[in-house]
Amino acid sequence: MDSLGRDSHGRDVHSRDLRYFVAVAQELHFTRAAERLFVSQPALSKQIRALERQLGADLFVRESRGVRLTRAGAALLPYAQQVLEHWRSAVGAVEHAKTEERATLRVGMSTRPARGGLLPAVRSRFGDAHPQATVRLRQVSWEDASAGLADGAADVAFVWLPLPDMERYGWVVVAEEPRHVALPATHRLADRDEIDFADLLDEPFLALPKSAGALRDYWLALDARAGHPPRIGAEIASTDETYEALVDGRGVCLAAAGNAPLITLGGVVTRPVRGITPSRFALAWRVGDDRRPLVAAYIKACGEALGRAE
């Protein structure tokens, strides 16, 4: 028998033939094997005879009380079992792939990636490649800088860098934007077109929750303070909380240029800031998850939407 399951005469040997053979070889009794297989004993005997003709060898010695394997049958048995085991594994792999294709991909975000129509473009490309998959968007509080990746609530996520525990994640930057400062319209610096970060060092800042870790430090611009500790006016975990705290005069905060329209709703202005690095918005995933078909497909769709070669 070759690797394609054909006998020496080129005729196909089906997995059913091998299942029948293995059942008889294990039971050493045609009637018990037939009951195990839920087929009639005559049908089973006929199929075994057909297999013996295909192979050109008797597989069993028929006796009054049952059967025993011939030398040829004993030689075939371990290979037949191996083929059936591989076939079961193959069927399982196919079922897993089908399930993956139909599965739901959860996309986390704390800031909606409206930039340049990115999200609709990714959704369109992903949907074309995987029409049976469902994409669910999950809005996550700023308390979780990973937007659901850390606790498994999201499969991929649009996040701001840096992430806590960066080594756990892979990512691709989808937007790089200057950081602006948001402040009350009545603030002493509000009439400037641009503000030096040095002029903000003593201002009370609105801070992300401590659980945001490195991201909290980033939006407080610790790297640009040269050891000058920030004053925390309030903690914020959403756009609404940020706006209310700004209007109340509890502090100022840094924001990506693309997010400025979300908080300039009246009584709040944003201005470009000199002396700090731009922000980076990214699509991120857990290390190793990029091997999952839907995760890999979403990453690819994002790259295509950004016009990058994959």
Results as ranks from 00 to 15, higher is better:
residue 2 D to I: 06
residue 3 S to R: 09
residue 8 S to D: 11
residue 13 V to S: 00
residue 17 D to I: 00
residue 17 D to N: 10
residue 18 L to D: 02
residue 21 F to D: 01
residue 22 V to E: 07
residue 23 A to M: 08
residue 33 A to C: 01
residue 34 A to N: 07
residue 41 Q to A: 15
residue 43 A to G: 13
residue 44 L to H: 09
residue 62 R to N: 07
residue 64 S to L: 12
residue 66 G to F: 07
residue 72 A to Q: 12
residue 75 A to S: 11
residue 78 P to E: 03
residue 78 P to G: 05
residue 80 A to D: 07
residue 82 Q to E: 13
residue 95 E to H: 14
residue 96 H to Y: 10
residue 103 A to H: 02
residue 112 R to I: 05
residue 112 R to Y: 15
residue 121 A to N: 05
residue 128 D to T: 11
residue 129 A to S: 12
residue 129 A to G: 00
residue 143 E to D: 12
residue 148 G to F: 12
residue 153 A to S: 15
residue 155 D to A: 00
residue 156 V to K: 02
residue 165 D to Q: 15
residue 169 Y to D: 08
residue 171 W to I: 00
residue 173 V to G: 03
residue 173 V to A: 12
residue 174 V to A: 06
residue 174 V to N: 02
residue 175 A to T: 03
residue 176 E to Q: 14
residue 184 P to A: 15
residue 190 A to S: 15
residue 191 D to L: 08
residue 192 R to E: 12
residue 194 E to Q: 13
residue 199 D to Q: 11
residue 200 L to P: 04
residue 201 L to F: 06
residue 202 D to Q: 12
residue 207 A to Q: 07
residue 210 K to H: 13
residue 213 G to S: 13
residue 214 A to W: 01
residue 214 A to N: 01
residue 214 A to V: 09
residue 218 Y to V: 00
residue 222 L to Q: 10
residue 223 D to W: 02
residue 228 H to R: 14
residue 228 H to Y: 11
residue 230 P to G: 06
residue 230 P to N: 04
residue 231 R to A: 10
residue 232 I to S: 08
residue 240 D to S: 10
residue 241 E to C: 02
residue 242 T to H: 03
residue 244 E to D: 13
residue 248 D to R: 14
residue 250 R to N: 04
residue 251 G to Q: 06
residue 257 A to M: 11
residue 258 G to Y: 11
residue 260 A to N: 04
residue 260 A to I: 02
residue 263 I to Y: 15
residue 265 L to T: 13
residue 268 V to K: 11
residue 272 P to F: 09
residue 275 G to Y: 09
residue 275 G to S: 07
residue 278 P to R: 03
residue 280 R to P: 02
residue 282 A to I: 08
residue 284 A to F: 01
residue 286 R to N: 14
residue 290 D to H: 14
residue 293 P to D: 03
residue 293 P to A: 12
residue 294 L to R: 11
residue 298 Y to F: 15
residue 303 G to C: 08
residue 309 A to L: 03
residue 309 A to D: 06
residue 309 A to I: 01
residue 310 E to W: 15
